[in-house]
């Protein structure tokens, strides 16, 4: 399903954290949001996923207006996300974390759950299988029974992806999925995101690793100080003088250059 963001904005204490941002993310593609620190990328995610209430603008899923819906209602319309600052359930095992993502798939009945009826066990068993498969996909299968609180930052990032995947989402918002990953892991995350998009899901990505962004994005939106300053394919963005001036700077440009030669 395609995700349309139309003129969205919010202000905190008079400062416009996100201001009149519009773009469209299409199924089967990776759309990346980039920009310097404090550009409003995560705030944009929070607006789109219903954590904050937008003070202006519209969000549409396949043309249907979903602006202002609470987070769980958006989830039920197929939107899932991961979090920049990690929102895992530290007291649960990795498996239980991912099983929680199956919530919407589970035909749960409170009474059956309380009485421990066979139907509750069946749902749990099904969720466990789905969660194991997702962990496998994220390369975490051997950590399934480890408490999340004992996992590394990079592993938790992937755990969140696995948890989002089992929701059965069609739109996936990923907030810095490769943060804290080493080169090998970054490559794995890269492949995983590729595969997710290839299934026809709409992927929106926030990422600082420019090589990764340039490699896997079909479409890039550049934010600076809450506003969209450029939009286009990787090649366009790389050569856009505004972007280079506002964001990439000397260091970023070098990285992007390096990425071009990978």
């Amino acid at each position: 399903m395609s995700l349309d963001i139309d003129g969205i904005g919010i202000a905190f204490g008079g400062i416009k954290a996100v201001d009149d941002v519009s773009f469209t993310a299409r199924p089967g593609e990776v759309t990346s949001i980039i920009g310097p620190n404090g550009a409003g990328k995560t705030t944009l995610f929070n607006l789109v996923s219903g954590v904050y209430r937008a003070s202006a603008g519209r969000v549409r899923i396949d043309g249907q207006d979903v602006t202002g819906l609470p987070g769980h209602a958006l989830a039920r319309r197929g939107m899932a996300r991961t979090f920049q600052n990690l929102q895992v359930f530290p007291q649960m095992s990795a498996l239980d974390n991912v099983m929680t993502g199956c919530h919407m798939q589970e035909k749960s009945n409170l009474l059956a759950d309380l009485l421990g009826l066979a139907s509750a066990h069946r749902e749990t068993a099904r969720s466990r299988d789905a969660a194991m498969a997702a962990l496998q996909r994220a390369g975490l299968a051997e950590l399934a029974h480890r408490p999340a609180s004992e996992m590394s930052y990079g592993q938790l990032k992937r755990l969140e992806i696995a948890r989002a995947l089992v929701t059965g989402c069609t739109i996936l918002l990923l907030d810095e999925p490769a943060a804290g990953c080493n080169a090998v892991e970054t490559r794995e995350v890269d492949d995983l995101i590729h595969a997710i998009a290839a299934e026809g899901k709409t992927v929106v990505l926030i990422e600082h690793d420019m090589r990764m962004v340039m490699r896997i994005s079909s479409h890039i939106v550049v934010l600076d100080q809450g506003r969209k300053i450029a939009e286009g394919g990787p090649e366009e963005i790389r050569n856009n003088p505004h972007v280079i001036a506002a964001y990439l700077g000397a260091h970023g440009a070098a990285e992007a250059e390096a990425a071009a030669h990978v």
Binding site: V51, Q87, V88, F89, H103, R163
Partner: peptide, 10 residues
């Protein structure tokens, strides 16, 4: 553990 995450899972 995290009501924000719970909400994001529906």
């Amino acid at each position: 553990d995290s009501d924000v995450a719970a909400r994001s899972l529906g």
